[in-house]
């Protein structure tokens, strides 16, 4: 029997049989999701599909009662600090302190990950440089545009060099050009830094042709595969049409 030399790598994110409910109303049901290191995955679902609940569980804002979550092999329940150290998060709501400068916000985040001021400053310059925003270091967040703020949040999420970057609808409130630029930028980050990315959205135009897509609807995973596979499986012509069919939005002729 042939034995492969390659040992299977621990997934960046491993979610198994995850269920969650709010006061008896199910929000997630038996969700399974694995993301490999350096993989870009789009979590596609309508509003109320359970995307933010999934993020709240993966970041341990809520505790997992049914199911299992591991980040880089660290069980989120038993090894929360190790798991948190491996993940960067960009929440749906903006979470930067508007009255502080970009530098002060990033140094604060660095401190929350145990970095010295010097290390946090160097990392901040590195990440802002990648975003083309190093000139904004001393600007107050309040003075930045929506797109710039989102870029700072992504820079902040990457400051501690996480292996997994979670983005919950990061383009909310941005114009089309800013949205495109942001999606493209995170794809580049994923390719260049080998960071696994979970990108939650309800916008079809944020899906690239070669992305892996997980369709979430009413708390259940309805499809999981590359765009071409999902489109073929649904007998549709586009990922938009396939998505509509999967979530029951399809219009009858």
């Amino acid at each position: 029997m042939a034995v492969s030399d390659e040992t299977p790598r621990t997934p960046a994110l491993d979610v198994r049989d995850l269920s969650f409910s709010y006061g008896g109303a199910p929000a997630l049901q038996e969700v399974d999701l694995r993301i490999a290191v350096g993989e870009f995955v789009v979590l596609l679902g309508l509003n109320g599909a359970g995307k933010t609940t999934l993020f709240s569980l993966v970041t341990r804002l809520y505790d997992t009662r049914h199911g299992h979550i591991a980040v880089e092999g660290h069980d989120l329940h038993r090894q929360a600090t190790h798991a948190h150290a491996c993940m960067g998060v960009v929440f749906q709501q903006p979470t930067l302190d508007l009255d502080l400068t970009v530098k002060q916000n990033l140094l604060y985040h660095g401190a929350l990950h145990g970095m010295t001021r010097r290390m946090a400053y160097e990392r901040a310059m590195e990440q802002l440089g990648r975003m083309g925003m190093q000139d904004s270091l001393q600007r107050r967040v309040r003075q930045l545009s929506g797109g710039q703020r989102r870029r700072v949040e992504i820079a902040r999420g990457l400051l501690h060099h996480p292996r997994l970057l979670l983005l919950d609808e990061p383009t909310v409130g941005l114009d089309m050009a800013s949205r495109r630029a942001l999606v493209s930028h995170v794809h580049e980050l994923c390719a260049s830094q080998g960071v696994a990315v979970l990108w939650a959205t309800h916008l079809i135009d944020e899906v690239y042709a070669d992305d892996r897509v997980v369709v979430l609807d009413q708390g259940r995973v309805k499809a999981d595969g590359h765009v071409a596979d999902i489109v073929a499986a649904q007998g549709s012509e586009t990922i938009g049409a396939a998505f509509d069919r999967l979530v029951g939005k399809e219009t009858t002729p």
Binding site: L107, G110, A111, H113, M115
Partner: peptide, 24 residues
């Protein structure tokens, strides 16, 4: 996390609170 990391975390939280206070 090493002991020094705990210190940096404390310093960061205190600095932020003081900065917010100065701004308000």
């Amino acid at each position: 996390m090493r002991g020094g990391a705990y210190w940096h975390c404390l310093r960061g939280v205190v600095t932020r609170e003081l900065l917010r206070f100065v701004h308000q």
